[in-house]
């Protein structure tokens, strides 16, 4: 054994946020249906973790649950834990939760126009949480608001700070929302589809800005998205979700170079890739569609669409298992093969 030196990045970096077996269900007049069936992941300091999945996989409900903002009814958290610096925020009283929202965990949304209050100036909306959480004086808070707008590269921040959301363009609004989210220096920034509503050139600007801010500030980012290209461009690690469960958890390189779960593979084969050549690639797609909440099949929820499905898949839910130190997958078919190989290797 070599004694681990502090320069070697062998030990696991600090975990800022851990979600442990989170269970959320929808309770409506028509009945009860599970939305999240055991969501678990860890977010380390300074990293960008992408939660990726298609509509109906539960990624947004999972993100909103971090702030206990999932619309209730119908959503209700029925189990699991969300640990922020080791403290379970699901057990906190609502008053303490208010101290966490915007202060420890901040959130940016897909559509900035609906997340910003139309009757208050941009400055006012940045200043308010600063005075509340950081106990800054009004003057100091305004100064910081201007500083934040400058940080997100909004031109003429002194003038813009006094403007209303409708006076800003779409890209500027998204920048203002990022400034608002970062104002209190949160430990975790949850970005829910932050570039989905933006044009491609504006998306590129915002992604570049987020990468730059991460380098400079070091906030851990939880990126919720359906867009694998955005994931490849920004994330360090990726959690792939399908119908309420995590199916794969890997570093971004492993995920794109050696995807293991059939769903991840199908997803990667479905996205058209920009190429210099003029040959058209044939897109594969995945047959069928995501089962709606309330009508999920038993066993592995992906089994009905999966070409590799074996009997075990239709009967019981596969657990998330390691295939490498930084790569976990929940699939009976894959684990079947892996264990065989390991056995062979052990025999040889």
């Amino acid at each position: 054994m070599i004694p681990s030196s502090p320069t070697l990045p062998l030990s696991e970096p600090d975990t800022v946020l851990e979600v442990r077996d989170l269970q959320v269900q929808f309770e409506t007049i028509d009945g009860v249906a599970p939305v999240l069936e055991g969501l678990s992941y860890k977010l380390h300091a300074g990293e960008t973790l992408a939660i990726v999945g298609e509509s109906g996989c539960g990624k947004t409900i999972g993100a909103l649950s971090l702030l206990r903002l999932a619309p209730s009814p119908p959503a209700r958290i029925t189990g699991g834990a969300i640990l922020l610096n080791g403290r379970d925020i699901l057990t906190l009283p609502e008053e303490d939760m208010r101290g966490i929202r915007g202060n420890d965990i901040a959130m940016i949304f897909q559509e900035p126009m609906t997340a910003l209050n139309p009757v208050l100036t941009i400055g006012h909306q940045i200043v308010e949480p600063l005075m509340l959480h950081k106990r800054l004086s009004r003057a100091a808070a305004w100064e910081r608001a201007v500083e934040m707008l400058r940080l997100v590269e909004i031109p003429e921040p002194e003038r813009r700070v006094k403007e209303y959301p409708h006076q800003l363009s779409g890209g500027m609004r998204q920048r203002a929302m990022i400034a608002m989210a970062l104002a209190c220096g949160p430990k975790v920034l949850v970005a829910d589809e932050p570039t989905t509503a933006l044009d491609v050139t504006i998306q590129a600007q915002i992604l570049a800005l987020m990468a730059d801010l991460k380098r400079r500030i070091g906030t851990a980012i939880l990126l919720i998205t359906h867009d694998l290209a955005v994931v490849a461009q920004t994330a360090d690690r990726v959690v792939v979700m399908y119908a309420g469960r995590v199916v794969e958890d890997a570093s971004v390189f492993e995920l794109f170079e050696n995807p293991r779960h059939p769903y991840t593979r199908g997803l990667l084969a479905s996205i058209p890739k920009l190429s210099d050549g003029n040959e058209r690639q044939k897109l594969e797609g995945i047959p069928g569609s995501v089962p709606p909440v309330g009508a999920r099949p038993p066993g592995c929820t992906f089994a009905p669409r999966c070409t590799l499905a074996i009997d075990a898949c239709r009967q019981s839910v596969p657990a998330l298992d390691s295939v490498s130190p930084t790569h976990k997958v929940a699939c009976w078919a894959v684990m079947d093969k892996t264990s065989k190989k390991e056995l062979e290797r052990a025999i040889v």
Binding site: D30, G31, V32, A33, P34, E37, G38, G294, R296, P298, G299, S316, V317
Partner: peptide, 10 residues
Amino acid sequence: MSSTRIMISS
């Protein structure tokens, strides 16, 4: 896990 599945209006 599958036992938590509740059929609606069963």
